[in-house]
Design a protein around this nucleic acid. Structure first.
Lengths: 331, 331
DNA sequence: GTGAAAGCGCTAACAT
DNA sequence: ATGTTAGCGCTTTCAC
């Protein structure tokens, strides 16, 4: 900027005014400064600006997700970026792989970069470590998983209700022995889905005592093996509710391997790519990651714009999409 | 930092030393400073540090992709993050949607934030606008698409060779009338794939004059309609090479709609999720987005570490994965 | 309409 | 082993 000022033959403050579109600069000076800036290929340093500025905003957001490589995170990320970019805000993203240590490291990395807000899929047991930052006024939105011990905005899918809807769907086709394939129980959304499943069975008057509820499945392979073991057991289920993406895919593979994909009903939680092209198509309770991302970003910006209301939980509805696998009656 | 110094009863430089792990601070002082920093929940400001530091590194990378929501970009992004995080470097990502205007805006946004390097899937006609920045020493790596008019590192898939392999595969099953379904011809990778396809036909002595080569398809729907029109024409092809992800999916839908998915052979470029669970499974030439991302990040860091060698093009091999759809003979 | 000086949070270079 | 001063690139404040 000093160089631009020198080249244009004006004071440094005048360059600042032109770059920031402030008033009180004559048209000729503006043109001279513009020309000088262009010829030097000048890009103003946003960090230096941020250092001195009254509001201290870095025009930067931090996003913490399971993995930037997974489609759910990607869709959320995209929705956040779309809103952020209209405000000239850039988005940092970091993958946690369900590792609480990585969460703390990543949060700290973002705070050192003075992000204006943080959107996170938390994986820690407790989020108390974020309290000082919250008090400092950094907007914080939890997505996909609810925090413990922190009052903040939260955006989640309707996990229990979605799971209940899936269960009701299977019940309506006459199934009574429905297996539940679940993720690790320390994951909060996994608990909610299990709760929704069991409560719906309760409402329907199905004794849950001999219902196979398997948890702790965290990848395709584990789900695949668990389902196969179940189907080869004494009392195999007539239907399966797979409560997560990868579990659903593992379950589909399991059913294929045993040639039971047209016999055993399956409903999954969370949509799966190309699910409609399989035979049968996979019936799922779809989440809406774009809407979750959009809402989260909206909350961040509302807070930055001065909203001081108490933290709220926003529940994004899920949608049952029937494609065939969930509409088979018990043999 | 001033506050920490005051609380610990030491000079500000001593705090700086402790925070940065510099030597020549006594154990007791270190402990006092640490305690003060913790109690104030102090996070050093990386931007302020960057402003003064000799190397002027922001520990930040900019990534420009088609969309952070698509799986190819996601996998690349993840690989880049994995390497970057080992160096404490955070990654900004931005989606371009094949819009050159967005490219310039996004690049400028990242330069203003003084990223240490830029990894980009360029969509502009010419990348000359990046020359000043290159000369300034900012490492630049082009991924997935080769630039024009800029000498820099480039990491791409083996587009022509992959397309040739797919074509050879179909030829080996006796197909002679193979349709080509291609993306917009202004996209460089699309051109390469078409070239590989046609050259392989040439090598096999197949007259390309009456081979249906359709380009300008950019989404599922367009591909779907184009293929259906082709199959209902006078001389339908016996096999199809779909040269991109979405085109492949559109083509599969088209074949299904006409009930020809077990009759017309299909090989796609770029892998498709769950392709192995379809019936028949979709044979593809798979790219390796993780490896592309890893290599790109590696090049950036090599440059930052002082590598001054001339820009090179790195070609990441593709892999033919046979799953059924490509192994059908002509009726 | 314009510019000079001070200061944002930190580190480099030099004291002590 | 520790502290002081200047200055990174910008904005704020205030003077012209």
């Amino acid at each position: 900027m000093k160089n631009v000022a020198a080249l244009a033959g004006v004071g440094i403050k005048t360059v600042s005014r032109v770059i920031n579109g402030e008033p009180n600069v004559s048209a000729v000076t503006t043109a001279r400064v513009r020309a000088a800036a262009d010829s030097l290929d000048f890009h103003p340093d946003l960090h230096a600006r941020n250092l001195r500025r009254a509001d201290g905003r870095s025009s930067t957001l931090g996003l913490l997700v399971g993995s930037v490589g997974n489609p759910f995170s990607g869709a959320m990320h995209r929705a956040i970026e779309d809103l952020a970019s209209t405000r000239g805000v850039a988005v940092f993203a970091s993958s946690l792989d369900d590792d609480p240590d990585r969460e703390e490291v990543a949060v700290s990395a973002f705070l050192r970069r003075r992000v204006d807000g943080l959107i996170l899929t938390t994986v820690s047991k407790s989020q108390g470590y974020l309290l000082p930052e919250l008090r400092r006024g950094t907007p914080l939105v939890f997505v996909d998983r609810e925090p413990a011990g922190v009052e903040a905005d939260v955006v989640v899918s309707d996990n229990a209700a979605g799971a209940a809807a899936a269960t009701r769907h299977l019940l309506s086709f006459g199934h009574r022995r429905i297996a539940f394939l679940g993720d690790r129980t320390d994951i909060q959304t996994a608990q909610e889905r299990r709760r929704g499943f069991l409560e719906e069975l309760g409402r329907a008057g199905v004794a849950t005592a001999d219902i196979p509820v398997i948890t702790g499945l965290h990848d395709e392979d584990a789900a695949n093996r668990a389902l196969i073991a179940l189907l080869e057991s004494e009392h195999p289920p007539t239907a399966v509710f797979s409560s997560q993406n990868l579990i659903t895919i593992g379950a589909v593979r399991g059913l294929r391997e045993l040639g039971l994909h047209r016999t055993i009903a399956l409903v999954g939680f969370d949509d799966v790519p190309l699910a409609d092209l399989l035979e049968p198509g996979i019936t799922v309770v779809a989440q809406n990651p774009s809407e979750i991302g959009r809402l989260a970003a909206e909350r961040i910006f509302a807070r930055l714009d001065g909203d001081r209301s108490a933290g709220r939980t926003y529940v994004v509805p899920t949608e049952l999409i029937t494609r065939g696998s969930g509409e088979m009656r018990p043999k």
